[in-house]
Amino acid sequence: MASRAALDTDVTTVGGVLTDQQPLDFHTLGLAGCIDRLTAPLRQRGTVVHWDTPHWGIEIPAGSASLLYQSAREALSNAFKYSAAHTLTIQLAAVDHGIRLVVADDGTGFDSSLATCGRHHGYGLRLMAVAVQEAGGAIDISASPGRGTSVTVTLPLD
């Protein structure tokens, strides 16, 4: 348990953005392990985090793993800052010729039309969408006030 507590202190929030103080180690921890580290501040607040990772055994190229990690960090940071979620679910799964990351919460939600427009809203989500699209992937943001948020990122693996 002491090692878990030490790991939890490696992830902090800076202006509500989750920041891992340790270098990414996809080789040792795997993508799911690196993303799970980011959930420590949410767990410390009492948010229950559920994992669904039926992708075991699939090799994810470093560039795709990094983009999925950054996407998860943005979605989890937004959940930390805005959602007041009681439960958060993270899914990392193989799909067709790709990999899909889903970060969903049961929090306050928001008007998803604001995620991609407006002068003061959604810059992180917009930047994530541009990066995912440039990598040949797709992003879906599903949210509505009072009904939680789901961010889905799908990247090709071939």
Results as ranks from 00 to 15, higher is better:
158 D>F: 08
64 S>I: 10
124 G>N: 06
28 T>L: 11
140 D>Y: 04
13 T>I: 07
100 R>N: 03
143 A>K: 01
71 S>M: 05
154 T>Q: 12
38 L>G: 06
12 T>K: 11
146 G>A: 14
115 A>W: 01
102 V>N: 03
62 A>V: 10
37 R>P: 01
158 D>N: 12
110 F>G: 03
28 T>F: 07
108 T>I: 09
123 Y>G: 08
53 T>S: 08
7 L>G: 10
138 A>H: 12
40 A>Q: 05
118 G>A: 10
4 R>V: 12
97 H>A: 13
72 A>G: 04
28 T>G: 04
136 G>P: 10
99 I>L: 14
25 D>M: 00
53 T>V: 15
133 Q>A: 13
21 Q>P: 01
132 V>L: 06
2 A>C: 08
132 V>A: 02
99 I>K: 02
75 A>D: 00
97 H>G: 12
44 Q>V: 10
67 L>P: 12
23 P>R: 10
20 D>Y: 00
125 L>E: 01
113 S>H: 14
102 V>Q: 08
77 S>R: 07
110 F>V: 06
40 A>K: 03
43 R>I: 04
134 E>H: 14
46 G>V: 09
50 H>N: 14
96 D>K: 11
10 D>V: 15
117 C>L: 11
118 G>C: 11
13 T>L: 10
1 M>A: 14
40 A>G: 06
54 P>M: 09
1 M>Y: 12
49 V>G: 05
91 Q>G: 12
70 Q>K: 12
127 L>K: 11
144 S>G: 13
10 D>C: 15
120 H>L: 14
112 S>C: 13
30 G>C: 10
83 S>Q: 14
85 A>Q: 01
153 V>Y: 02
9 T>Q: 15
17 V>A: 12
7 L>P: 00
14 V>D: 14
98 G>D: 05
24 L>E: 03
44 Q>Y: 03
74 E>Q: 13
61 P>T: 05
73 R>G: 07
149 T>N: 03
106 D>Q: 03
136 G>I: 09
150 S>M: 13
90 I>A: 04
134 E>P: 08
32 A>N: 05
96 D>W: 02
142 S>F: 04
5 A>K: 15
136 G>C: 10
64 S>A: 15
9 T>R: 14
50 H>I: 03
132 V>G: 04
2 A>N: 15
154 T>E: 11
110 F>L: 12
111 D>S: 08
140 D>I: 12
138 A>V: 09
24 L>C: 06
76 L>Y: 03
131 A>W: 08
25 D>H: 01
122 G>Y: 04
150 S>R: 13
45 R>W: 07
36 D>Y: 06
90 I>L: 14
56 W>S: 13
8 D>V: 03
32 A>S: 12
47 T>R: 00
52 D>W: 11
35 I>F: 05
68 L>D: 02
118 G>M: 11
82 Y>I: 08
135 A>G: 08
55 H>T: 10
137 G>R: 05
102 V>E: 04
37 R>M: 08
134 E>F: 03
99 I>R: 02
17 V>S: 09
34 C>T: 04
31 L>H: 01
63 G>N: 14
77 S>Y: 04
63 G>D: 15
82 Y>D: 01
45 R>H: 10
119 R>G: 12
65 A>G: 14
98 G>I: 10
146 G>N: 10
48 V>G: 08
66 S>P: 00
110 F>C: 09
136 G>Q: 07
20 D>G: 02
11 V>H: 04
67 L>M: 06
125 L>A: 13
134 E>Y: 07
126 R>Q: 15
29 L>P: 00
3 S>K: 12
77 S>N: 09
